[in-house]
Design a protein around this nucleic acid. Structure first.
Lengths: 133, 133
DNA sequence: TTCGTTGCAAACATTTTGCAGTTTC
DNA sequence: GAAACTGCAAAATGTTTGCAACGAA
């Protein structure tokens, strides 16, 4: 059960950079497409492998699934999201002050371990409301 | 864009019954397996089709994805969940009193439309903690 | 009789994996 | 040199769809 040593990898850092630079909470394929220009030899498998690993390590987080595609967030700090069930856009969405205490509050009455939580608001974004009215 | 009339369907009601009776927040395949004994001629496609439709109608809700499988909840009333990232069990988990006001609170400062939210706590359940310690 | 519903099998799409070659340390 | 990392292509898996038969109103 010893975890393997971690080595530097240019590809991994590029993936991380794209994810952190994006504010759209992208899918694996979106990241892959972005990287393809600067790193033409990158493979989609590498993106998947690294995202999976980083997620496991808690360095990134899975925000939601839309259209069967997993969407990621490089920002692991405490914040909520809004997802438009119409077009699939995902935005940071902070409206809750007490969000921060939730985990410790939940932990009090629970005999398992709470690691984190996700709070996702669903609805229809302004743009889609205009388009479909 | 007229929506189609809904007819009674024994299969649909059976799916609904299994989902409502289950407290494990099952996947499509789990429901299918349960039904297979009482309705040997049911097809997995039917389960998927009906779940998709019911979800669209807001009669049921998608709680989370685990192992690539979507997990459903027949209880649409306001409540949170805990998911064990180790074994995938999903439980109802209510610890938050102000949960109810969240949507209207979120709506105030937002020019889109908020329909509902999902609050999911992630961690490791008691059983898994014992097994892996 | 109309048209929603279904089973079946085929089609799809995303994600994972085996392997041989490459890179990091 | 050992072991992590990668590209490629193939495989695996969950989900969707076309179609002809079936069932409800």
């Amino acid at each position: 059960m010893t975890q393997k040593a971690r080595r530097y990898s240019r590809k991994r850092e590029a993936i991380r950079a794209v994810l952190n630079g994006a504010h759209c909470h992208p899918s694996a394929e979106w990241i892959y497409t972005q990287l393809k220009t600067e790193l033409p030899d990158i493979s989609l498998a590498t993106v998947y492998r690294n995202l999976g690993e980083m997620k496991q390590n808690g360095e990134i987080r899975s925000v939601a699934f839309f259209d069967g595609k997993e969407r990621f967030d490089g920002d692991v700090s405490r914040h909520s999201h809004f997802i438009c069930d119409c077009c699939g856009r995902i935005d940071d969405f902070d409206c809750v002050k007490h969000d921060g205490e939730l985990d410790s509050l939940a932990q009090e009455s629970f005999n398992g371990r709470i690691d984190f939580h996700t709070l996702v608001f669903h609805g229809v974004c302004h743009d889609c409301l205009l388009k479909h009215s």
